[in-house]
């Protein structure tokens, strides 16, 4: 008998696909949902698929920090931090795009995400922490599957920085900077779930 909340990967994938395609509130996230579905359906998941998924999350982070700077009235320290985070996520995008080109023969499609803030810094901070935490877990799940040692090292260099970002955001939010002793890896679906939990919060438009 299934526990409450327990779902199979397949049914979750289907739910995510439907959510991504049907819900206007998930504008942007729909770009990730079908990708995950396709990857799960593929019999041979390669380095390029993992890089592509990582790149989508990096694009999401760039959009998040960019929008926060445009639309929110951030206090000085938080504004400075968000500028750094946006710049570093952009560098991750550039690095992963270059690496992906080597594995798939060309750059991936350009992605843009849309956020609809209501002017609440706390909402932004909570979501940003959630994204950074999800990204760390996603990378920690992906890295052991990478055959290339160079890519493993590259993604390791990125995930440490994502972890540092998460700690900095938690400090800004007056939370514990490192709440857990371990950051276990998650599947890509679990990482996506962490983001989709915010679908009804009005943070996406």
């Amino acid at each position: 008998m299934k526990q409450q909340g327990e779902v199979t990967e397949l049914s979750r994938a289907e739910a995510l696909r439907k959510a991504g395609l049907a819900a206007g509130a998930l504008y942007g996230l729909g770009a990730i949902g079908p990708h995950v579905h396709r990857v799960l359906a593929a019999s041979n998941i390669g380095e390029g698929d993992f890089l592509s998924f990582s790149l989508k999350f990096e694009h999401l982070q760039v959009s998040l920090y960019q929008t926060a700077q445009r639309r929110l009235s951030l206090p000085r320290d938080l504004k400075r931090l968000v500028e750094v985070l946006e710049d570093e996520e952009r560098q991750h995008v550039a690095t992963l795009t270059a690496s992906l080109g080597e594995y798939k023969g060309g750059p991936p499609e350009r992605l843009a995400f849309a956020f609809a803030y209501r002017g609440l810094n706390s909402q932004f901070l909570r979501f940003a922490q959630e994204i950074e935490t999800a990204v760390v877990a996603a990378y920690n799940g992906i890295i052991p599957k990478m055959k290339s040692k160079e890519l493993r090292e590259l993604l390791g260099a990125i995930v440490q920085v994502e972890g540092r970002h998460a700690a900095a955001l938690r400090i800004e939010g007056k939370g514990e900077p490192a709440p857990n002793a371990f950051d276990p890896g998650t599947t890509q679906l679990e990482a996506l779930d962490s983001v989709l939990r915010f679908a009804g919060s009005g943070i996406f438009r």
């Binding site: 760390v136 990378y139 920690n140 890295i143 052991p144 390791g156 995930v159 440490q160 920085v161 994502e162 972890g163 540092r164 970002h165 998460a166 700690a167 900095a168 400090i171 900077p177 490192a178 857990n180 002793a181 371990f182 950051d183 276990p184 890896g185």
Partner: peptide
Amino acid sequence: EAMLSIHSVEGQHAATLNS
């Protein structure tokens, strides 16, 4: 997997102390 799950936490510790 064990090393990775610790590695990012060490990064968080370092970032906190830097902060």
